[in-house]
Write a protein that binds this DNA or RNA. Structure first.
Lengths: 130, 130, 130, 130
DNA sequence: GTGGTCTAGACCACG
DNA sequence: GTGGTCTAGACCACA
């Protein structure tokens, strides 16, 4: 898996790392029980302060996305995602997206078309969507 | 025109003001050469410090959205590039929605399906999304 | 004579009017005892607040460039310009220009070449230099 | 590098800071990737409010002259368009000099003659212009 | 009346 | 440590 950081992005770097890990999960590049790169490894690769990587992993752990085996590293957690929770999350994400679209004068169809186009584009050049 | 500020929103207040002005433009509530409320007026209405409003206006001016007539006030500028703007807005909305979906473990298809369902539901009970 | 105002110029409007009048003097478009346009006339032509035009004329009068005949209007003053004063002014203007040039890494020759080019350009299209 | 502020100068202090930074770039005292003094550091040295320095840095960032590494400081950006910049600077210096000359009743030829004389004089007694 | 600038000082997120 | 945001309130130039 590859993690891309953009220092001109408005998001904090640690949030970018979190988003990249979650993205790899959604896309299947990371699966349950896979190890994440070690904090030092990733910090070295990305030329980041280890504290920044550690903060990202800490927050992912707090969310239950990953877990730590002491002395061994950080691993992708089993994700039960009860059907009811997932349904709620899905609704919330859709509601936020629609609200944002309406605020900018776009209809639901506009939104769907744009999402489809953006997701096709990022399938061709995986990092372009950011 | 009405400008709504939400202090629990993660965006800085001055960015919220900018977004609200841009939204009023998209919706047609503000048009070319219309005056914006004066800095002091809006600051008083929203219970904000005038500097916060002034920062929002200053950045909008730098973007070419508004312009200042010295001693007279702040006015909506002529906006030739509206088609290009809309395209940019569409992309940004889609990117935000996809990012939010990925953060919650949803794929682009999940998002599209959820938006479609939510939009069908709100067709029965209009205005619920606001 | 023609006075051009640019509302996007950083200079205050009343200063622009003063500069235009002085420019007309240097270029010979206005001569001793010529009348300036009346405050109301000029304010109407330029769509300005009469106060703004009046402020410009007031400051020009304070500098001795123009004088007022009560009930008749504003006229270009006789400019004795004692040789000693003029010599001092010339030195100061040159010193300021050279300081500005040096601050920006330009030599005296660079400055002279640029001034010559700018003055040639403004001779072709009189308002381009602003 | 040294930044000099003059409170009697008509330019706002934050603009003076911007000009001094740009001047240091032209003179080579600041180069690509060099760090600027921190906001607090410079504010302390110049006895200014940190906000004033921050405004200068913010505008320089918007111009692409510097960039911010979060939590680390402000740095000089890569500057590809240096030739175009120099041309712009040359024009601006010449325009200011001509404006100043016209304001004092001098023609472009008067200005050029005076600059030539002043520069010859300072060749005999170097550094007098600073 | 308008916006522009500046000071003083607070709190926050980030690395 | 860094810069970013915000408040409170002052003074100024301009129209």
């Amino acid at each position: 898996m590859h993690i891309a950081i953009n220092t001109t992005d408005a998001r904090p770097i640690y949030v970018q790392i979190m988003d990249e890990v979650r993205r790899a999960l959604v896309l299947g590049a990371l699966r349950t029980e896979d190890p994440l790169p070690s904090v030092r490894q990733l910090a070295g690769d990305l030329r980041l302060n280890p504290n920044t990587v550690a903060q990202a992993y800490r927050e992912l752990e707090r969310e239950g996305v990953v877990y730590v085996r002491r002395g061994q590293g950080t691993f992708v957690a089993d994700r039960p995602a009860s059907a009811r929770d997932r349904d709620l999350i899905v609704r919330e994400v859709a509601a936020r997206a629609l609200l944002d679209a309406h605020r900018h004068g776009l209809s639901a169809d506009d939104l769907i078309a744009a999402v489809r186009q953006a997701s096709d584009a990022s399938a061709d050049t995986p990092r372009a969507a950011e």
